[in-house]
Simulated assay, not measured.
Amino acid sequence: MDLPVMPPVLPMLAKSVAKIPPGMQYEAKWDGFRAIVHRDGDEIQLGSRTGKPLTRYFPELVSALKENLPDRCVVDGEIVIVHGGRLDFDRLTERIHPAKSRVDLLASTTPASFVAFDLLALGDRSLLDAPLTDRRSALCSALSTTRPPVHLAPATTDPALAQQWFEQFEGAGLDGVVAKPLDLPYRPDARLMFKIKHERTADVVVAGFRFHKSGPIVGSLLLGLHDDRGALQHVGVCAAFPMKRRAELVGELAPLRMEDVSNHPWAAWAEESAHESARLPGAQSRWTGKKDLSWVPLRPERVCEVAYDHMEGDRFRHTAQFRRWRPDRTPESCTYAQLDEVVGYDLAAVLGAGPAAV
């Protein structure tokens, strides 16, 4: 492979802001695997957000990218899986599997798509120093005839349309809106773009915690909600605390620690078969590898309010943010019924929203 921008390349990133800023290019925020595609003739490399190779996990995309991308290019985009008219992140994570036979089966039964939203190189020319407007124009020209499963991400410079996308596209499983300054060059691993994500709050049961990797202080709180059967399901964690606060939490939670976990709602977490019928903490994943996922069980008596962006099935898609303790709420009142129901929106309508407005 011999390209003007060689792998690995770490993608340019975005920092969170509360509102959609004016005077920029706006795109949907895709909820998938960020990927930089390098193509040099028959050679295709898919690089992850951390620079690690993804190519072997998505063999169906290799052939699709050869059919749809210019012979020599570097493209920034997102690998997604569509199921039931919306993005499905859980099915996407299943693709990271060590067995080729399993990968090949999933490539056939749950094929992935690639959504392109930036162009880093074309032919012998690097576009890293070109402004976004030039890169977007070149991307639209290069992908003018692209066909599924490769898509050109819709973009607009109209903030009113961006706000409409922000409100509607969540129903298709998207994550918010990204705003990009029009004169912005491409700077790998720099947070120079802006992301606007949905934020909601929920009252949840604190049923355990994990120690921080640095020592005997709280690393994260384990959160639960009661389902319609009354069972407490593990829905995620909140973890962003100052170091001083992490130490204080150990003492605050000490009276709730359980020596005998047999009566804890998640007592079966160590049994692999139990994770098939209930959402429990501590399940090993292909992402965490050998990371210590052991946790300290607490009597599920304390309630806190957390902020979250959206749900993935019956859990928080991302780490929740601690807001406050809720001594006025009972654990039994913390149910899924309090969560907002997002109005459905067909992903096909998102991808048909128009290729460019720059």
Rank of each mutant, 00 (worst) to 15 (best):
M12C: 02
M12D: 00
A18G: 02
I20Q: 02
Y26Q: 08
R34K: 14
R34Y: 08
V37S: 14
H38G: 01
R39Q: 13
D40A: 10
D42H: 04
S48E: 01
T50W: 01
T50H: 09
P53W: 00
T55I: 07
R56Y: 01
C73D: 07
V75H: 10
L87F: 12
L87Y: 05
D90K: 02
R91S: 13
L92N: 01
T93M: 13
R95L: 11
A99N: 08
K100S: 15
S101G: 05
S101D: 14
R102W: 03
L106P: 07
A107M: 05
T110G: 00
L127H: 05
P131W: 00
A138N: 05
L139M: 09
C140G: 03
C140Q: 06
S141E: 15
L143G: 09
T145A: 13
T145R: 15
T145K: 14
T156W: 02
A160P: 02
Q163H: 05
Q163F: 01
L174C: 12
D175A: 05
A179P: 15
P188M: 01
M193K: 11
H198K: 05
H198T: 10
T201S: 15
D203E: 10
V205I: 08
A207T: 09
G208T: 10
K213G: 10
S214Y: 02
G215R: 12
Q233G: 01
G236S: 04
V237H: 13
V237S: 10
M243D: 12
R246K: 08
E248A: 05
E259A: 12
D260R: 12
E276A: 09
R286L: 02
W287D: 01
D292Q: 02
P297T: 10
R302W: 13
V306E: 08
D309S: 15
D309H: 14
H310V: 06
H310K: 12
E312C: 10
F316M: 06
R317F: 10
A320R: 09
R323N: 07
R323S: 07
R324D: 09
R326D: 05
R326W: 11
P327R: 06
D328S: 04
C334E: 00
C334V: 04
Q338A: 04
L339Y: 11
D340L: 07
Y345P: 14
D346N: 11
A349R: 11
A356C: 15
